[in-house]
Design a protein around this nucleic acid. Structure first.
Lengths: 205, 205, 205, 205
DNA sequence: AATGAATGAGACTTCATTCAT
DNA sequence: TATGAATGAAGTCTCATTCAT
């Protein structure tokens, strides 16, 4: 009996055999979600990935699991991106600017990934762990920036993260349809962000 | 009892199309969309509004029309809000701060409206006219703010609107789950916004 | 107050159940059924008739009743048509040709009536009495024609009615989209019909 | 067990799209449309075919496509019927009579097919290609019949097709409820048709 | 393990009919 | 009596998921 139920369980649980197919499905999901929203049919994702409709469910138990896997995958990419950007940063630029550039550039080169990431963030489908992981990533990206003052520490970090992320996304949003202005907006956006979080000495005088 | 013309008008229609029901449907749609996303069934909206499923379609030809009507309604409210906020602004505060306060306060008091508005903005269901109207509203809200420099005029307005809107929404997003910090974040957010768009040159003097 | 209500009351009484509205509804139903099939919404009929949706159901208990009323109305018209056509028939033409001409001409002048009549005939919505009445009308129209031979009487009548009706409708069907050929087809059709029912023996003599 | 190539073919598809189900759906549609009209629900067709409601739409994109497929199927059958009837025609009978007999017999044996075909012809749901194909079939069936005179060629063919089709359908209509009279009506109908289109020499004398 | 046919719940929408005015 | 707003059953079609092959 126990043997039996174990067997069934094993059959039901997604047992990916090919890493390649899993990647193809994630890539396809990112594209399809970006193009048609999270309500797009799983069959469209399977087709884009070049696999059968049913195959998707051998790799991802159901659509919600797929969505969360997509988000995890995008965070993996982002984390690696940030790590690399710091290492590669040019001597003349600060670490924060290296991360900023890397993030904005990546979003412009991977518009589907950026779009799907944003859709997932507001979908209500992510787990608390994933939300936390997302925030941690922002924490890391913000490392090295001077903290805005006038708030206690916890609130200050939270606040600064929110502001900086928002400005970054805003720059990406307006640059996406006008790639020729990317350099201008990227620079201006970075400066605006730095000013926004600069400690307001003058207000204390 | 009431005046004559009203009485006559009433007699001409069997049951007047109830303004109340239309409002109830819009309110219900705002709530349901906020809670369950734009993919929520129309039947849920009808039920929340306390009308039959078919009744929804007497007031709104189909779901897309309903969505656009919801957006128009929210813009109506926002426009009025901005107009009033300027009039009511306290002597000591600038116009821009009055609008800022009004916007943040409204979003916190009407979280569903704010959430649904955001969802609609990225839904791809709005008409070009509606997108334009949304941007015009932001233009109006930004009136009186000094323009960030270093960009030509058109790009500058665009850029500034994007940055300011983003910061505003960020403040709303982090304040929503922590209402007791609203005052702090609202103040800090306003200052951050003003710094972000401050002319760069002045900081070098 | 009493003055007022009395006035209104009188206005309502001055609008009795009107023969005119009933006729308008029948006319509208004929048109709408012809244009959009028997599945067309009753609301479209009411609108075409210039009355409210609910008013239709004060004149016709439900849609099936309306359909049957339409058919009865069309038979009324046909009966009168046949009666008049005999009276008016020119000296040189036989009675059968007079009826034939009247029928074909009428169908071409009233395409909607003809189309709706045909649709109703195959709708399965008519009562047995109505089907019988329809056949009786054909019997009357056929009066005076020599009976095809080689069949016993009952079958012969039945057969001849079917053939003649079919040829008549065929002529109408091909003439409707080509009104300029009406005269040609009408004549040729009549001759074909007369030949079709000519006693076979006579051709052998 | 079976031969190799079949086995290999089988392995490539999970479950082959069953020809049998498609046929069952077409058959069910023909029956249901005949019994309840073209407005009958697709769910009734699926149930009659013994498949789930959704399965119908895997085989036919939507109801209109199903209707057109039904018509194409019926024309396929008719074309084959006509071809066979000519081949099988007895030495003593003319080709035209063979076709006539085959058509009438077929309609009586397949009343649902005949009824549905007629409904589709007047439904306005068929494509122009299908209407043309239907007329071409009649042309073929009429081949070999002497053309009625007194009209120019084009109109003559059109006219004759209409008359002959009409008489054929009339015979079918009156025979269907009285199968024991089929032979009589079939014979009499054929003779009536031949007389109807016979060149009227006498009128020229 | 992979496939894709099959399933059926549920979405949106229509419309005959009822009923408050 | 006339009106037309309200109703909800029923229709078409979609799609996440299961399952036979």
């Amino acid at each position: 009996m126990s043997d039996h139920s174990l067997n069934l369980k094993r059959l039901q649980v997604a047992r990916p055999r090919s890493e390649e197919k899993q990647k193809a499905l994630l890539r396809a999901a990112i594209e399809i979600f970006a193009e048609h929203g999270l309500g797009a049919p799983t069959s469209a994702i399977a087709k884009r990935a070049g696999v059968a409709e049913g195959t998707l469910f051998r790799y991802f138990e159901n659509k919600d699991v797929l969505m969360r896997a997509v988000f995890d995958h995008l965070l993996d990419v982002s984390e690696q991106l940030f790590a690399e950007s710091v290492v590669k940063s040019l001597p003349g630029t600060s670490q924060s600017q290296a991360v900023w550039d890397a993030y904005v550039d990546w979003a412009l080169v991977n518009p589907a990934a950026n779009a799907t990431s944003n859709k997932l963030m507001v979908s209500g489908k992510l787990s608390n762990e994933q939300m936390a992981r997302g925030m941690r990533l922002v924490d890391i990206a913000m490392e090295g920036l001077p903290l805005v003052q006038g708030l206690d520490l916890a609130h200050s970090i939270e606040f600064q993260n929110a502001i900086c992320t928002a400005i970054g996304n805003a720059v990406i949003d307006i640059s996406t349809p006008r790639p020729h202005l990317l350099a201008v907006y990227k620079r201006a956006g970075y400066q605006a962000m730095m000013r926004a979080i600069k400690t307001p000495e003058s207000s204390e005088s």
